[in-house]
Amino acid sequence: MQKYTTEEITSKLNNLDGWDYTDGALETTFEFKNFKETFCVMTRIAFECELQGHHPDWTNVYNTLTIRLNTHDAGGVTEKDFVLAKTIEEIIDSE
Rank of each mutant, 00 (worst) to 15 (best):
L84C: 07
N15C: 11
D57L: 14
A85P: 08
L69V: 05
T22R: 13
H55D: 07
S11C: 01
T29Q: 13
A74C: 11
L13E: 08
D20E: 14
E31Y: 09
K36V: 09
E37W: 02
E79H: 05
T10L: 14
I45W: 00
D57E: 15
R44A: 10
T38R: 07
E8C: 13
M1D: 12
T71E: 02
T87G: 01
S11A: 12
R68H: 06
W58T: 08
N34S: 14
L65W: 04
R44W: 04
E8F: 06
F82N: 01
E8L: 10
L69Q: 03
D93S: 12
Y62T: 11
E50A: 04
T22D: 08
T64Q: 05
T5S: 15
Q52T: 07
K36H: 05
G18S: 15
F35Q: 05
E90M: 12
F82L: 04
N70S: 08
L26V: 07
Y21V: 01
F30L: 02
I45K: 01
D57R: 11
N14Q: 15
D23H: 11
T29W: 06
D23R: 04
A85I: 02
H55T: 13
W58E: 09
T29R: 10
M1N: 06
L65M: 11
K86W: 03
T6A: 15
I45P: 01
V83S: 06
V83M: 03
L51G: 05
I88P: 01
L13S: 14
N70Q: 15
T28C: 03
T10R: 12
T71Q: 04
L65S: 05
K33R: 13
N60M: 04
E89R: 01
N34K: 11
L13N: 10
T66S: 10
R68F: 00
E79Q: 08
E79L: 07
E31Q: 10
F30D: 01
T22C: 10
S94M: 04
Y62R: 03
F82E: 00
F82Y: 02
F35P: 03
S94T: 09
L84P: 05
G24Q: 09
C40G: 13
M42F: 10
